[in-house]
Nucleic acid binder design. Structure first.
Lengths: 134, 134
DNA sequence: GTATCACTTGAGCGTTTGTTCAAGTGATAC
DNA sequence: GTATCACTTGAACAAACGCTCAAGTGATAC
């Protein structure tokens, strides 16, 4: 743990509220970890990849069927599957000539659900007073 | 240009496993909703924005302090705050000349936590000795 | 009024990203 | 062996993205 008087970064030179900045510096995760977090969300931040993940959530699928479902080329889907594989969000098994893809673990589903929940909240739910205007 | 066998449902025409595709089509959310979901995650998919959100989670902050904390220009931070505002992930209040930003609601924290949890699972799962696998 | 502060906004620019196209790999069938 | 199928991969290119710079806005102080 850090000393409470340690303000070597948030001193009086440049900050309007140095004490607040010092507190935030202490309590927020490191920029490196947050950068990894951003990289993870970046994978979910594409329509094609989210559609693939959402489809695989229902059933394992081969690349050709995924391409037909999304109305995209085999190559485009394969490129995105590569990104999903690299980030361990999907796994694959081979059966003869066909390769079946499926979600890597339950965490992927949880992340999808979390986002869908938030979307519903944002779109002014019927009986929720937390509906901002503008 | 579509061929004569192109149909709106997954029949025997182009798919290797038409019944699987049909099931997925029925059970997966619409492409429009999934596109909105991708747009939401896109906001979380940038290191600067995640750092801002993570900082605001600890305490409300003004733009200048955020810029100092992240070691970025006022303009760069303001541009990202605009994106966060547009997606209702942060809210602001004015106090004289200073504008304080804070997280819009608890859902934002939950999404951040979900991602951080997943990162920990990926790096060193408790029962899996498969660390540093590639 | 002018000046300053805190912040926003638009244009410009280099970097990143996602798709297409063409070529290549690995497995099955003959 | 050759042929075909299912899929992958690398290069290329347009579109989207994030930062910088300069100008602009709104509030306070004088």
């Amino acid at each position: 743990m850090c000393d409470a008087t340690d303000q070597n970064l948030a001193d009086e030179s440049q900050f309007i509220h140095p004490n607040i900045v010092a507190t935030v510096q202490k309590e927020s995760p490191s920029p490196e970890l947050l950068s990894d977090l951003a990289d993870l969300y970046k994978i979910f931040g594409d329509s094609t990849r989210v559609q693939i993940l959402s489809a695989l959530r229902v059933h394992e699928m081969c690349v050709g069927d995924l391409a037909g479902l999304l109305n995209m080329t085999l190559s485009a889907v394969s490129h995105q599957l590569r990104a999903l594989r690299a980030n361990k969000l999907v796994k694959s098994r081979r059966d003869g000539k066909i390769i079946f893809y499926s979600l890597a673990d339950a965490h992927v589903e949880a992340i999808l659900d979390m986002g869908l929940e938030h979307l519903q909240e944002i779109n002014c739910p019927p009986h929720d007073p937390h509906c901002f205007e503008e």
